[in-house]
Simulated scan of single mutants.
Amino acid sequence: MAQYGRIEIHLADLLEKSGLSKNKLCHRAEMQRTQINGYCNNTISRLDIDVLARLCYALNCEINDLLEYIPPDQKDAD
């Protein structure tokens, strides 16, 4: 999978900038804390578009604030 790059989730950074606690985000986005932790720690394996919409709504951000595509290292591709 690394040959295609990866998606990085910046939820922890957005939470810190917003000043919201994980508990408040759970309430606003109607999500479980374990799910929030998975997104904060980049440990999820599949993105859910409904969850992404909830996070963007709750944090008043754009999807490109939340997600970043990291291309593969050119040395790894050769």
Rank of each mutant, 00 (worst) to 15 (best):
T43E: 12
C26R: 03
M31D: 00
M1V: 13
I63G: 03
I44V: 13
N42D: 06
L47Y: 09
D65T: 04
Q35F: 14
D65M: 00
C56V: 05
Q32P: 09
H10G: 02
I70Q: 03
D78G: 09
D76L: 06
L14M: 07
G38F: 07
R28F: 12
G38M: 05
V51A: 15
D65A: 01
A53R: 14
V51K: 14
A58R: 00
D65W: 01
N42M: 02
G38T: 07
A2Q: 11
S45C: 15
D78S: 10
L14C: 01
I9H: 01
H27G: 12
S18P: 04
E68I: 09
A77P: 05
A12G: 04
Y69H: 03
P71D: 01
T34I: 13
M1W: 13
Q74Y: 09
Y57G: 12
G5V: 00
C56K: 03
E8I: 11
L55S: 06
L25V: 04
D65Q: 02
E16G: 06
L52P: 09
Y39Q: 03
T34C: 08
E30W: 10
Y39E: 05
I70A: 01
D50V: 14
D50P: 10
R33G: 11
C61Y: 00
I9F: 05
Y39V: 05
H10F: 11
H27Y: 13
L47T: 06
H27K: 14
C26Q: 05
E68Y: 10
A29W: 04
A12C: 06
D76M: 03
A12H: 07
L11A: 07
D73R: 10
D76F: 04
V51Y: 11
I44R: 08
Q35T: 15
A12L: 09
L11I: 08
Y57D: 14
T43K: 07
I36C: 01
T43A: 04
D50Y: 14
L47S: 07
K22L: 10
L52I: 15
I36F: 05
L11Y: 04
E30P: 06
N42P: 00
S45M: 15
N37K: 12
G38C: 09
L67F: 04
M31R: 03
Y39F: 12
K22S: 13
N60S: 12
C26P: 03
I44Y: 09
K24S: 12
L14N: 00
G38W: 05
D13K: 12
R54Y: 08
D78H: 10
N64M: 10
A58T: 03
A29D: 02
E62W: 04
D48G: 03
R46V: 13
R54T: 12
D78V: 08
V51C: 13
D73A: 11
D13H: 12
